[in-house]
């Protein structure tokens, strides 16, 4: 029976079936099965395979995103049942958003989805994000990484503003800064003293993993 439920969670993720995942998660709670095992071995295993397939070019973005959704919705059911003191081993906490004045959010959303699918706990602030909101969220959730996206050459300076504000709030050495977006480059990342640049979502995951090693 326990084997069975783990397989059902994993299969639901692998079949991009949000409903079945939620159904299986509810059953975990009902039957008193260990929620931690359900998360790490059932859902986690499934998502890991999906991530690998995506990276290998075997599956498409909507499949990855729906799998991540299945994970997220099941987590919402399972997390409250975790015994006190246990926490899920997220790879790290990432706060991500498009900087103020910029509404380009497609690239940023994809990066957020890839990070979620790869096991990061992601706080997506959306687009046109005020500097103060970046800083406040980093502080509130004790983020390990802050990711900023800019697609306009005129909004790139907002990244500097956020870095300065992090400095001022005494948070800069607690959080790694990663930047991206079409006009952004590794040279720009260096110029504004960010920790890293990534050119696409797959690179973003690798960079995030490396930064937290």
């Amino acid at each position: 029976m326990p084997e069975n439920i783990l397989n059902r969670l994993k299969d639901a993720v692998l079949k991009y079936d949000v409903e079945s995942a939620v159904e299986a998660a509810n059953e975990v709670i009902k039957t008193g099965f260990d929620p931690l095992e359900a998360i790490e071995q059932g859902l986690g295993d499934g998502l890991r395979i999906v991530g690998e397939k995506f990276e290998a070019g075997e599956i498409f973005l909507p499949e990855l995103m729906i799998a991540a959704q299945a994970m997220k919705q099941s987590l919402a059911i399972l997390k409250p049942a975790l015994t006190e003191g246990t926490s899920i081993k997220a790879l790290g906490r990432v706060v991500i958003g498009t900087v103020e004045g910029d509404i380009h959010d497609i690239g940023k959303t994809i990066v957020a989805a890839m990070l979620t699918a790869s096991g990061f706990e992601v706080y997506d602030l959306g687009c046109d994000t005020p500097t103060s909101k970046f800083v406040d969220t980093v502080k509130d959730v004790e983020a390990d990484i802050i990711g900023m996206s800019a697609l306009l050459t005129t909004t790139m300076p907002k990244m500097t503003e956020v870095v300065n504000a992090l400095n001022k709030a005494g948070l800069r050495d607690k959080v790694k800064v990663v930047v991206g977006g079409a006009p952004v480059s590794a040279a720009w990342a260096k110029e504004i003293k960010a920790d890293a640049y990534a050119e696409d979502a797959i690179a973003a995951v690798n960079v995030a993993k490396k930064l937290l090693q």
Binding site: G57, F60, L61, P62, I106, G107, I110, D200, A201
Partner: peptide, 9 residues
């Protein structure tokens, strides 16, 4: 169109 594999416009 949106390239579903390479995530690019």
């Amino acid at each position: 169109n949106f390239d579903m594999k390479n995530l690019r416009w």
